[in-house]
Design a protein around this nucleic acid. Structure first.
Lengths: 215, 215
DNA sequence: GTCTATAGAGTGATAGAC
DNA sequence: GTCTATCACTCTATAGAC
């Protein structure tokens, strides 16, 4: 699924080599090089989360892995490639393509559960909060990624709220696409507030919003 | 006032030299040096907005002003000093200390009006969206600034919603402090969505939220 | 108040040895 | 697959002339 700062299962190994040069598509499992790649991706996630994409150097990430920076660039030819690999790896860990065919209730429950989980994973929240703002610039390497991400998230949620409306479960004054955008905005904004003050209850404030919108 | 990406009057000159070394507190108006300072602050706002604090160099800002970077650093001794000067200048332009003693209705109207105005000032929105995310890191020069900013914004809005509740103008299920945090989050999140897609109607989505919370 | 020059460190990326 | 060495920049900041 595709929550805005969606958390997912950590430590999924051996599935994150798509599209990388120098690695054969068909090869044995328990490849030693794949472990290095996984280490790099985990480390890069933390580093980008702490200082953003522009604020983090390839050397810094490599050093935390116990590597030199040319060794890292052997696996990911450019820094932008590394960023995109980190993002797609999270997408895969989060279950692939969006909410898929989840029902409306399951969708909203998943969202609240994710907010609760995120409150235990500061790094992931920092990554998406920092990057989504950074990537509003049209020249940022992750710009198109975030455009697509938000468009599909809003589309899925609009479908969900419309389903609720059809079943008479949405407040009469609530428009599905309006609620979808508001919900996404709320998740993003609450993350910034939580990062500045961990007392902020992201999941609770999200649930309170949903209570006011449901019939 | 202190909206999250609050816009204010541009081009206010000769009022932004507070706390800068090398400039006497009491001096004649129409100081020539003050014009350079103002030019630098306007230019720095634009530049920080486009690429964030970390993504912008002092040289880049100086060049856009037709200056060399040592000339700029004569006016603002460090890059962090320049950032803080940009932020305090905007706060002054926006009217000083928060919502002050504005009534609840005036407060909310001001907020919606600001959202509408912001849709014509992409640079200002980019500045606050990028910086507020960047500044969640505890070592960022603007970290304390944003902590204070959000705390006072939430406090003011909580007071406003409480005032409405006392007058029976708030929906029964709405808690003032919950609504305050949600409203701030909504403003922040909508800005990111608007930066990624200018079709997004920030003011309209904000008004729609307020309609669901008022009695 | 602005300049040139430079220090001193950091940047992404590449070449080539092993 | 990882290394050392290096290229060609860029960065913030300072020294000192004018």
């Amino acid at each position: 699924m595709k929550g805005v700062a969606m958390a997912g299962t950590r430590g999924v190994k051996g599935v994150a080599m798509a599209g990388t040069p120098g690695v054969k598509a068909t090869r044995e499992l328990s490849d030693r090089g794949a472990e290095t790649r996984t280490l790099i991706l985990d480390t890069a996630l933390e580093a980008f989360a702490e200082a953003g994409f522009r604020g983090t150097s390839v050397r810094e990430i490599a050093a935390r892995c116990g590597l030199t920076h040319p060794a890292l660039l052997y696996h990911f030819p450019t820094k932008a490639d590394l960023l995109m690999a980190v993002l797609s790896r999270r997408d895969q860990a989060d279950g692939g393509d969006g909410f898929g065919d989840l029902g409306a209730h399951a969708m909203l429950e998943h969202l609240v559960a994710t907010a609760r989980l995120n409150a235990t994973q500061r790094g992931v929240v920092e990554l998406y909060a920092t990057l989504s703002a950074e990537a509003t610039g049209r020249d940022h390497p992750a710009h198109e990624y975030f455009r697509r991400r938000y468009a599909s998230l809003v589309a899925d949620l609009t479908r969900g709220f419309a389903e609720l409306a059809a079943g008479g479960q949405l407040a009469a004054r609530t428009d599905p696409s309006v609620a979808a955008r508001q919900l996404v905005a709320l998740m993003d904004g609450l993350q910034v507030q939580w990062l500045l003050d961990p007392e902020v209850d992201m999941a609770g404030l999200l649930e309170a919003y949903l209570d006011t919108q449901l019939a």
